[in-house]
Nucleic acid binder design. Sequence first.
DNA 1: TTTCCACTCCCCAAAAATAGCGAGGCGTCA
DNA 2: TGACGCCTCGCTATTTTTGGGGAGTGGAAA
Lengths: 239, 239
Amino acid sequence: MGTTGRLDCILESLEQANTLDGLQTASLSLRDHLRVEHIAYHWVDSAGDQYGCGTYSLAWQERYISQNYQRIDPVVIGCFQRFHPVDWKQLDWSSKAARAFQLEAIEHGIGNQGFSMPVRGPNGQFALFTANDSCDDNTWATFTERHRHELVLIAHYLNEKALEIEPGRTPEIAPALSPREVDAMTLLAIGYSRAQVAEQLSISEHTLRVYIESARFKLGALNTTHAVARALSRGLIVV
Amino acid sequence: MGTTGRLDCILESLEQANTLDGLQTASLSLRDHLRVEHIAYHWVDSAGDQYGCGTYSLAWQERYISQNYQRIDPVVIGCFQRFHPVDWKQLDWSSKAARAFQLEAIEHGIGNQGFSMPVRGPNGQFALFTANDSCDDNTWATFTERHRHELVLIAHYLNEKALEIEPGRTPEIAPALSPREVDAMTLLAIGYSRAQVAEQLSISEHTLRVYIESARFKLGALNTTHAVARALSRGLIVV
DNA sequence: TTTCCACTCCCCAAAAATAGCGAGGCGTCA
DNA sequence: TGACGCCTCGCTATTTTTGGGGAGTGGAAA
């Protein structure tokens, strides 16, 4: 199996990449380095928008996207609820849809063993990095144990690169809110009504409204809910 | 500086830890390994609830929590908007509050150089791992460059451990929203009024209301704004 | 010094959201 | 088959939020 030294080289070449093609090339190196059949980086957007690179067949990728399989894919669902990398065997394949999905995947050349690592970025960004192969359970267990650190690192750097390449998906620069506006947005975000927020801040409800309005204006929001959503997704408030 | 071998040992002992004290002990080893003045793991929780471990003085930790400094701490705010680790020098210290905060931190023994790594878990969980020291810019740049991989790994494993130790702290397991509920929450989050959402989804406003209510119920939210905020911060919708 | 911004307070009328009921059809899973 | 969840539609009434005005303080920056 590859050495840490070689991984460093690959990560370095990954740093040079600045297009999706670059990521694709890096994927191939990574696969060779890890000596597995497939690796895949898969950016999952809840709007169903997707994006990724890896060594899965194009036919499978297209099929996956066109069928919106991320909705039923146990790998996606399972990783979404976890922080640590997971072996596919630990996932829930019990539903009918999941088993049908798995069969179809295998028909498209996906191996029976998989190990996937969830990665999360700002604004709820979510992606997976997967290593995939066909082998028996023991071989796979040895592989995952030995490469755990590497897989974590690879997932991190791939996602870092993906975020860099797709800046359209990252947030606009945030227009700072005043302290009172932050207070107001924060309390609204945790469910307080206007009256409660005003009481909490010891100001009149009329005053509070001015803050909400000015925050709404600064955030270019159409209403309070929108303003809170923008403040949240731009990291101006933390709930 | 330490070798990768030693880091592996520390990470292994980290794996054994199963209490906050264990994390605290691991922090000390990590500090020695990295040869910095301070390291800190800081779980930034909703509602200002906090949690962490590290080598900062108790006085500072208490002060930080009692003053809710995570609201103005440029490290928290900056990391919250980013994926990659950041040097404190790259952050925005321009506001008055931020500068006052920095001065106070230094008085409490925090070094002038810092390097922080954001980590995110399921349900919008968010934490920081920081290495901190007092030295000149060049020394620090060399340090951060050499230890980048290590810091990423440490942050990952510390957070994995923290999630394991404090499972109660993770917000309730995300009660998946139905597709229509997701639609409703998403459109509300981008500023549509109820009438507009209903029109967009081609359903009656009455029906829409059922979705909003059931989403609110599932999310344990007190009102629509709260529900949207929760859906956002748990990564159930993306705006 | 003047200008700007953050903070505070007030009124009123219209629009929107909420709470409480009700109903039926469709699909999946045990 | 029956339970359950999802999607769809209806009513009434109350509470809350919003949008449009205006007005004064104090501090910081230009």
